[in-house]
Amino acid sequence: MNIVVLVKQVPNTHDVRIDPKTGNLIREGVESIINPEDRHALEAALGIKDRLGAEITALTMGPPQAIEVICEAVATGADRGILLSDKAFAGADTWATSTALGLAIKRIGEFDIILAGRQAIDGDTAQIGPQVAEFLGIPQLTYVRDLEVLEGKITAERVLEDGCERIEAPFPVLLTVLAALNEPRHPTVAGMLRSASERAPIEVWNAADIGAKALDVGFLGSLTQVTRTFTPKEARNTRHLEGSPGSVAAQLIQCLQEQGIRLGE
C-alpha cells in the first residue's frame, strides 16, 4: 500500500505576538513547527504501516527550511520525503497550493491513501485537503476521528456539527484528520540524525520537476490575493455594566451580540 502524507511547516501561533506600537506580527523568536494536526495524519499512516505494511511518502511545500518537517516525518517513520520548494511557489493561495501538491502527487505515482491534518494553524482554512482530492478526482473524507483500513477500501468516522457519521470510501482516497484520531509518536534520535545526513531519502523538487508553469502556481497562479492585514483587537478596554441584575444581564447580552457572539445558541 502507498500512502502520501501532506505536512506543513507553520509558525507556532501560540508564540505569535503583536507589536503593540506597529500592529505587526512579531515573528522573531517564533518557532517553526510541524502543523499539529499533520502529526496525527502521519501517525495514522504509521499505524497503517505497522499493521498492514505500507510505503509512506511525506510531502510538503514551503521555503528551504521547511525541509525540517520532512526530516521529522522521515525520522518518525516515513519512507521517503519530498519538499516542493521554488520561488515560483511563493505567495500561493489554496488554489495554487493544491495545484502544486496535486501535480507532485501525480509525479510520485501510485497511491492508495492521502492523509493530511484537517487544517493548518497559521491559516485555519481546511481547504487544501478537499482541493487536492478534487484535483486528483478522488473521494475525500474530512474531519476524521477514527478510521479502519479494509481490503481496497476504508471506513472512517467523520465528526459532524451535531454527531458523527460512519462512511466508506474506495481507494484511492484522501482523508483530513482531527487530533482525536490518535496519539502521535515522537521521532527517534537515530531517525533524526539519519534524516539530516546526505543519505536521507529526501528529495527537493522545483516547479519544472512537477511540470508546473509559472502561471499555475505561487502568487501568479493564485485566484485570491490578500489586500490588507490588520490587528483585530487592541488592549482590553474594560466596560463597566451597572444597574439591577436584570438590566446588567440585558446589557451584557447586547454587548456580546454587538461583537458577534450570541449567548444561548
Partner: peptide, 25 residues
C-alpha cells in the same frame, strides 16, 4: 532535482527534545 542545505542535526535534536519536554515532561 535541486539541492538545498540539509538541516543541522543539532537543531533537529534540540527541536525534537524541546517538544518532547514540553509535551511529555
Amino acid at each position: 532535482m535541486n539541492k538545498i542545505a540539509t538541516p543541522i542535526p543539532e537543531d533537529l535534536i534540540r527541536k525534537m527534545f524541546r517538544r518532547f519536554t514540553e509535551e511529555e515532561i
